[in-house]
Design a protein around this nucleic acid. Structure first.
Length: 637
DNA sequence: TATCAAGCTGTTTTT
DNA sequence: CAGCTTGATA
């Protein structure tokens, strides 16, 4: 069964979706709930109906979740028997990676390079940090990775960036930090690693430098549609700009008020400067909100209007008026979580579905208490955002084995894998890794390890995987025969539940044709693991960052208090832009609600007590004061 | 000298 | 709660 999005649009949406004027590019400014994604899908439908070949069309998003959402919507307009005619939907990173892999010759990409995830990147920085004379004086591996990544994503010279952003007393460490950066960069090159930023960087560089490559990529795509344009960073914008310069038609949708990714180098000014940088552009607007009631929008508008930044947003509800939002204050986080759970139950008793409820959290950890109550009461739920399946240590243990079989130079993963075995610690593992350095083939590295450790069993599993690299499912099943007993003894009684995650991974590997595809897909796109239970009848706990683009009838935003909004880290930074971003985060959270918006907070932060008393006494008068109350808190800096 | 066991620390958000 | 550092032990 298919529907048409084109038949169900308002005038502005239709104008954007079917734009066929003289301009090459379209920039669509669309506030929260104004049908942004709907218009993007309708545009896709329009182009396909016009006869554009699906493979000439690419849709780009920023988060994996947005990708998934977009794919689901697209499948509504494309007949199921013609799903092969679906245009590709990817995150920027996935898009660039596939481009590099599929066209490695034309793009001069070395296909042997392998992607490392953030965790691996941190290990490398830890190593590089340990190489300098006074490591203790250096920033943490987290900070190092962030400085490095941020300066690259924003296209800044690293030294200049450090000079501008480090506090004055740490300025004398800059030479040492730059040295660490160099060590990291060199190590990456030596081992054939590719970090997340490299993926974008390589593509951007090639597009800048080579006209031939620009034209080559432009010959692959006629239309590129970008969602959440305000989340583009310098590298991503460069890619868009360069492709447009050789004739690819861009359709970019964005909202500066919903920009939440500046920590990743995103610059919402890219939305404002778009027309200057891509001259052949028409600017269109959507401003009628179809999602929420006016009361919810009023509160959200107020929050934005208190800002020193002029967002030029005033959302008007197509639906008119409904219930006023609530703001409850609780004694402590446990009472807060318990009340939310009870409220969900009572709404369900009155006819609502579990799936109508969404709990929005600033950080994944804040959702844990609610999750606990949901588990206890047997309420079906899902958690989106934060660390997931792939970050759990047992999965990383298992995947380290798969990774070394794919790339024998991968020292980080060798160390992890070797450490699993009894009587092998950091020292032995690093010694082994140093020897592998000199090997020139996978089999040579394996026999070297065998010889060094005098135990053939360690590499047996890896040999099995290599033999079956064309069949991930078989390879992984065989691998587990070798590794399960080791993991079982490492995790003891926890093994029972951890084992199930591995079962899941093995099952999911069936979908892939090669081991490389499997690993890559899991590094950039771990969401695959979550769509296993496609059950919609679930309460959702979700981080605000993941929640962009989603909605629910009843939304709970918990922890609406200083320290959370704005987050204490942002307050501590003393950076006005970071505080401003916190406002937008809360704005995005509030504008997710369709019918009912409930904000909660605790009176004293972090206080945890056994007494389950909640202050029903807190009257709804507070409600009218929320924006001003919050405003005070946003001025803390 | 190297492994292992026990504490301490710290963690926003995502690719 | 997992990883890293530290200190005890072989």
């Amino acid at each position: 069964m298919t529907t048409s999005y084109l038949t169900d649009l308002n005038v502005e949406q239709l104008a954007a979706a079917t734009y066929n004027g003289s301009k090459q590019n379209v920039l669509l400014l669309a506030g929260a709930g104004t049908g942004k994604t709907r218009t993007l899908v309708a545009r896709t439908e329009y182009l396909l109906k016009k006869g554009v070949k699906p493979n000439k069309l690419a849709l780009l998003t920023f988060t994996r979740r947005a990708t998934q959402e977009m794919q689901e919507r697209l499948s509504e307009i494309i007949p199921t028997d013609k799903h092969h005619r679906m245009p590709s939907v990817n995150t920027f990173h996935m898009f660039c990676m596939k481009l590099l892999r599929t066209h490695c010759k034309a793009l001069k990409f070395n296909p042997k390079l392998i992607i490392i995830d953030r965790e691996d990147q941190l290990s490398l920085f830890l190593w590089a940090r340990g190489m300098v004379t006074r490591p203790d004086d250096m920033p943490s591996k987290y900070d190092l990775a962030n400085y490095y990544s941020y300066s690259r994503n924003t296209g800044q010279n690293k030294e200049a960036y450090l000079k501008a952003n480090l506090s004055s007393h740490s300025k004398d460490r800059i030479p040492a930090i730059l040295h660490i950066f160099n060590l990291y960069t060199k190590r990456k090159a030596d081992r054939g690693y590719l970090d997340f930023d490299d993926i974008l960087y390589l593509v951007a560089q090639r597009l800048i430098k080579s006209e031939r490559i620009r034209k080559y990529v432009a010959s692959l795509y006629d239309y590129i549609l970008v969602d959440e344009m305000q989340d583009t960073n310098h590298l991503q914008f460069t890619i868009i700009e360069r492709l447009a310069s050789v004739g690819v038609s861009m359709f970019c949708v964005g909202d500066d008020a919903q920009s939440l990714f500046s920590f990743r180098g995103a610059d919402f000014h890219n939305v404002n400067s778009f027309v200057d940088r891509l001259p052949n552009t028409t600017k269109l607007k959507l401003d009628i909100n179809y999602r929420s009631t006016q009361e919810i929008l009023d509160m959200s508008n107020d929050l934005l209007n208190e800002s020193r930044i002029k967002y030029d947003k005033h959302l008007v509800a197509h639906r008119g008026c409904g219930n006023s939002p609530h703001f409850w204050v609780f004694h402590d986080p446990i009472v807060e979580a318990k009340w939310i759970t009870q409220d969900i139950i009572s709404r369900r008793n009155k006819g609502a579905k579990w799936g109508d409820h969404m709990v929005l959290v600033r950080t994944a950890l804040l959702g844990k208490t609610v999750e606990g109550f949901l588990i206890n009461l047997n309420i079906p739920y899902k958690v989106i955002g934060g660390t997931g399946l792939l970050d759990s240590s047992h999965v990383k243990d298992f995947l380290s084995m798969v990774r070394v079989s794919r790339s024998y130079m991968s020292d980080i993963h060798w160390v992890r894998y070797l450490n699993l075995w009894p009587r092998i610690g950091q020292v032995t593992a690093s010694r082994a890794v140093n020897v592998i350095d000199k090997c020139s083939s996978s089999s040579e590295s394996l026999s070297t390890i065998d010889a060094m450790l005098g135990r053939r069993t360690i590499t047996d599993g890896i040999r099995d995987i290599i033999k079956n690299r064309k069949n991930p499912y078989t390879a992984l099943k065989l691998a587990r025969k070798h590794i399960d007993p080791i993991l079982a003894s490492k995790y003891g009684c926890e093994w029972e539940w951890r084992k199930r995650d591995l079962d899941l991974i093995v099952k999911l590997s069936k979908k892939f044709k090669t081991l490389t595809q499997f690993i890559e897909s899991y590094t950039i796109d771990p969401t695959n693991s979550k769509d296993v239970d496609a059950n919609d009848e679930l309460v959702t706990i979700i981080t605000v960052h993941s929640a962009k683009g989603t909605e629910a009838k009843t939304c709970y935003v918990l922890g609406v208090q200083p320290g959370v909004y704005p987050h204490y880290k942002a307050i501590g930074s003393g950076n006005a832009d970071e505080i401003e971003e916190e406002r937008r985060i809360l704005y995005v959270a509030m504008t997710r609600a369709e019918d009912t918006l409930i904000l909660t907070r605790t009176s004293r932060d972090n206080q945890r007590g056994p007494e389950f008393m909640y202050s029903e006494a807190m009257d709804e008068k507070l409600l009218s004061k929320i924006p001003s109350t919050l405003e005070k808190e946003f001025r803390i800096l």
